[in-house]
Computed example of a mutant assay.
Amino acid sequence: MKVISLKYCLFIIAAVLAGTSTYAQNGVNKYIRKGNALYEKQQYSDAEANYKKALEQNGQSAISSYNLGNSLYQQKRYDDARAQYANSLKVDGKPDIKSNADYNIGNTYMEAKKWEESIKSYKQALKINPADEDARYNLAYAQTMLKKQQNDGGGNDKNKDKNKDKNKDQKDKNKDQDKNKDQQNKDQNKDNKDNKDNKDKNKDQQNKDKNKDQEEKQKPEPMPSKMNKQEAERLLQALAQEEKKLQDKAKKVKGQPVPVEKDW
């Protein structure tokens, strides 16, 4: 289904608004006609400039706002175009201008894929002009796209929730696995520490035993006795006799008179 494009018919002023001077009217007409000529040549930016000058002459010109909206639409400036169409609706204009403005507002929403807003605008255009087949066609298209969007959105939400639950389960599963892994690592570290402590204790004990054996080996052993009791007594007696001899000898030396020289 292809969307009907912009209603690009360009209006010109056929009558003077109440209270508008002939000079002002001529100025507005001049810029609108020039803008329309440029628009037909697809010089949309230059056409835009002339429609703006027309609005400077008469800011209440529904035709100037509508044609300006068309030039902005052709430049894909859809938000700005919508604002100008809305301005044309605020002015008491002809029904065909109002109908076309609502239709084109629907198109700007269509470009943004805002289906509900575009449906509302097309319905408004059909209220003013029930014979507008383009508006009826675009209305059906927008309704179809809205229904598709709602169906796709609902399915996506369900899938999103399903994926969310699946991700949550996987996350919980991973969390439990990490928790078990941490506990296993803790237990393994504890076992390794206990084994290390036991090994260190055994090593310390072995070192102590080894050092004790080494000390025992290095400890001086008592010299074995070479004399028995009788031999010791004889030795003592001999020593005693020798000491007595020395004492007697000393006495003799001590008591010996000192000789004097002869007196001749």
Rank of each mutant, 00 (worst) to 15 (best):
S61Y: 06
K123E: 12
D204F: 01
L72Y: 02
S118R: 00
Q149V: 02
K147C: 00
N174E: 12
L68K: 03
A250G: 06
N67W: 08
P95G: 03
L72R: 09
D165Q: 13
M1C: 08
Y73E: 00
P224Y: 00
G255P: 01
K147N: 14
Q177D: 07
K166A: 15
K252P: 09
G27K: 11
E243C: 04
V16T: 14
V16W: 06
D102N: 15
D169K: 11
K244N: 13
Q170N: 09
R77I: 06
D169W: 04
I128Q: 10
K210Y: 04
D152G: 03
M145R: 15
M110C: 07
K114Y: 04
K114E: 05
D213V: 00
I105L: 10
P224V: 08
K217D: 10
Q43N: 13
V253E: 15
K41M: 13
D157V: 05
A15W: 07
A81K: 02
T144S: 11
E242V: 07
N189M: 00
D182E: 15
A238L: 08
Q205N: 08
D172P: 07
S88L: 06
K76T: 09
N29L: 11
K7V: 06
P259Q: 11
E216P: 04
Q42E: 11
N151D: 15
N67M: 03
K127N: 13
K186M: 08
V253R: 13
N163M: 15
T20Q: 08
V28K: 07
K7T: 01
E242F: 06
K208D: 00
T22H: 10
Y85P: 03
G255E: 14
P95L: 07
K147A: 12
K190G: 02
K229P: 05
D209S: 04
N192K: 14
I105E: 02
Q124N: 14
K41G: 03
D182V: 05
W115Y: 15
G59H: 05
Q150I: 14
R136L: 10
D263R: 08
M145K: 14
R234N: 09
N151V: 13
K30E: 07
M227Y: 15
V3H: 06
L55F: 03
N180V: 11
A81E: 12
N87C: 00
K203I: 08
D96W: 15
D96P: 07
N100V: 02
N195H: 13
